[in-house]
Measured scan of single mutants.
Amino acid sequence: IDAAQIVDEALEQGITLFVVNNRLQYETSRDSIPTELLNKWKQHKQELIDFLNQLD
């Protein structure tokens, strides 16, 4: 699994991931984030931050 897949998966569930001051953040209108997704974010945090920083 790679960062792009995780970002896409989040988007499919209505969650936008982004980076502020090198910290992973998210925006969503959902009430809660699925635990499975949160765990993936934690496991791949640095990859996600690097990936999202490249997009900007």
Rank of each mutant, 00 (worst) to 15 (best):
K45R: 11
I6S: 01
K42N: 14
Y26D: 00
K40L: 13
E27S: 13
W41A: 03
R30L: 12
E27A: 14
Q43H: 10
Q43E: 13
Y26M: 06
L48G: 00
R30I: 08
L48Y: 01
Q25P: 00
H44C: 05
P34D: 06
I49Y: 03
L52T: 00
L55K: 14
T35P: 13
L38E: 06
I33W: 03
N22R: 04
Y26P: 01
I15G: 00
Q54A: 14
Q43G: 05
S29A: 12
R30H: 09
L52C: 02
V7F: 09
N21P: 01
F51S: 01
V20Q: 12
L48R: 00
E12W: 07
L24S: 02
R30F: 06
D31L: 07
Y26H: 04
A10T: 04
A3M: 15
S32R: 09
Q46L: 07
L37Q: 03
L48I: 15
N53A: 09
F51Q: 02
I6A: 04
L38N: 03
I6H: 02
V20G: 05
S32A: 10
V20K: 14
E9K: 03
D2I: 14
L11Y: 09
D50V: 08
L38P: 02
D2Q: 11
Q46E: 10
E47Q: 11
V20A: 11
N53T: 14
N21R: 05
S29T: 10
L52D: 00
N21L: 06
T35N: 11
L37N: 02
E47S: 08
D50K: 09
D56M: 10
A4T: 05
A4R: 12
K40C: 08
I15D: 00
L38A: 06
Q13D: 04
N39V: 11
Q25L: 14
D50I: 11
T16V: 14
V19A: 06
L11F: 12
P34L: 02
I49V: 09
L55R: 15
N39H: 11
G14R: 05
K42V: 12
T28E: 03
A4H: 08
A4Y: 07
L48D: 00
L24E: 01
L24V: 05
I6Y: 05
Q25A: 11
K40A: 05
T35Q: 15
S32P: 15
E27V: 13
K40E: 04
L17C: 03
D56Q: 14
Q46N: 09
Q5W: 10
Q46M: 08
A10R: 01
G14T: 02
H44V: 06
I15C: 03
A4V: 05
K42P: 02
Q54C: 07
L48C: 02
D31A: 06
E9T: 04
Y26L: 04
T16A: 06
T35A: 12
K40M: 10
I15F: 08
F51K: 02
V19D: 01
D8N: 15
I6N: 00
W41S: 01
F51R: 02
